Computed example of a mutant assay.
Amino acid sequence: MPARRTRRFVLFVPVLLGAAVLAFVAQRPLGRRAGWDGWVGTVNGVVFLAAVALPVAAAAVWWLARRRRVAGAGPGWARRSALADVGMVYGTLPWVWMILLPGVDPGGPRRRVNLVPLHDLAEVVAAGPPATAVAQIGGNLLVFAAFGFLAPLRFAALASGWRVLALGSAGSVLVETAQYVLRLDRVSSVDDVLLNAGGAALAALASRRWWRRTA
């Protein structure tokens, strides 16, 4: 086996084992929920399905890269573009799925909206324990982080932190609007938009050295 393939194999094995451990930990509480609701209607269910889907995502990267090489693309670009395409979907869809999970009273008359910047964020920091605040803020920063990191590598037109910030803001507004329209009994908050968009922009800056080189 060539040295490069050996390195990839050695790196992939810990990732696969980590996904298996994560899936095992996430699935333990699912037996308490009857039917499909426990698997698709809870955070643990989404985490479990995302972990299980990791090998499928890896296979999709290989298949896309192979198809693009056959179509005439260079090996390096075929791999990078395939990884970016699959990574943007795999790294974003579970977070959006969790955001759109219904609250306590879905379909009810209550619709909660907060358009005051930093109001909800201040309440989370003041009211909850530090670990909860860090988890909630960190989760919001990660919603579009995969998109922000990989989109500039995939599309030359998005090789700009400001453009990624704008797209992250638009995507977050769509998600928050969906929460309101679908009556999911969740708070549609401007703070979520700020954190989601900020996470995308920070991720774009983290990959800046690579997409500037590609450009």
Score class of each variant (00 low, 15 high):
residue 66 R to N: 11
residue 65 A to I: 11
residue 92 T to P: 05
residue 74 G to Q: 05
residue 94 P to Q: 09
residue 58 A to W: 13
residue 90 Y to T: 05
residue 89 V to N: 00
residue 65 A to N: 03
residue 75 P to T: 03
residue 86 V to A: 02
residue 72 G to C: 09
residue 94 P to F: 05
residue 70 V to R: 15
residue 57 A to P: 07
residue 73 A to L: 13
residue 69 R to P: 00
residue 75 P to W: 06
residue 91 G to H: 04
residue 82 A to L: 04
residue 64 L to N: 00
residue 63 W to S: 14
residue 78 A to Q: 03
residue 57 A to D: 05
residue 82 A to M: 05
residue 75 P to L: 07
residue 79 R to H: 03
residue 90 Y to K: 05
residue 85 D to Q: 14
residue 62 W to L: 15
residue 70 V to Q: 13
residue 72 G to Q: 09
residue 85 D to N: 07
residue 64 L to E: 00
residue 85 D to Y: 14
residue 72 G to L: 10
residue 81 S to Y: 13
residue 94 P to R: 06
residue 88 M to Y: 07
residue 61 V to T: 09
residue 74 G to N: 04
residue 82 A to P: 02
residue 77 W to V: 12
residue 62 W to T: 13
residue 70 V to S: 08
residue 78 A to N: 02
residue 68 R to W: 15
residue 87 G to K: 07
residue 83 L to D: 00
residue 86 V to F: 02
residue 57 A to K: 07
residue 60 A to Y: 11
residue 58 A to S: 12
residue 89 V to L: 13
residue 62 W to H: 13
residue 76 G to L: 06
residue 82 A to W: 06
residue 81 S to H: 15
residue 93 L to Q: 06
residue 75 P to C: 00
residue 77 W to T: 11
residue 57 A to E: 10
residue 56 V to D: 06
residue 81 S to A: 15
residue 66 R to P: 00
residue 66 R to T: 13
residue 90 Y to E: 03
residue 62 W to N: 07
residue 59 A to V: 14
residue 79 R to M: 06
residue 81 S to R: 15
residue 88 M to E: 02
residue 66 R to Q: 13
residue 87 G to D: 08
residue 74 G to T: 09
residue 94 P to H: 05
residue 73 A to R: 13
residue 83 L to I: 01
residue 66 R to G: 14
residue 77 W to H: 10
residue 71 A to L: 05
residue 86 V to I: 12
residue 84 A to S: 13
residue 89 V to T: 01
residue 68 R to C: 04
residue 58 A to K: 02
residue 90 Y to A: 14
residue 58 A to D: 03
residue 63 W to E: 04
residue 84 A to K: 07
residue 59 A to F: 15
residue 61 V to F: 10
residue 76 G to K: 11
residue 81 S to N: 15
residue 82 A to D: 01
residue 85 D to H: 12
residue 59 A to L: 15
residue 89 V to E: 00
residue 64 L to W: 09
residue 84 A to Y: 05
residue 69 R to F: 01
residue 88 M to H: 08
residue 76 G to E: 12
residue 80 R to G: 09
residue 85 D to F: 11
residue 69 R to T: 06
residue 80 R to H: 07
residue 86 V to P: 01
residue 87 G to C: 08
residue 61 V to M: 14
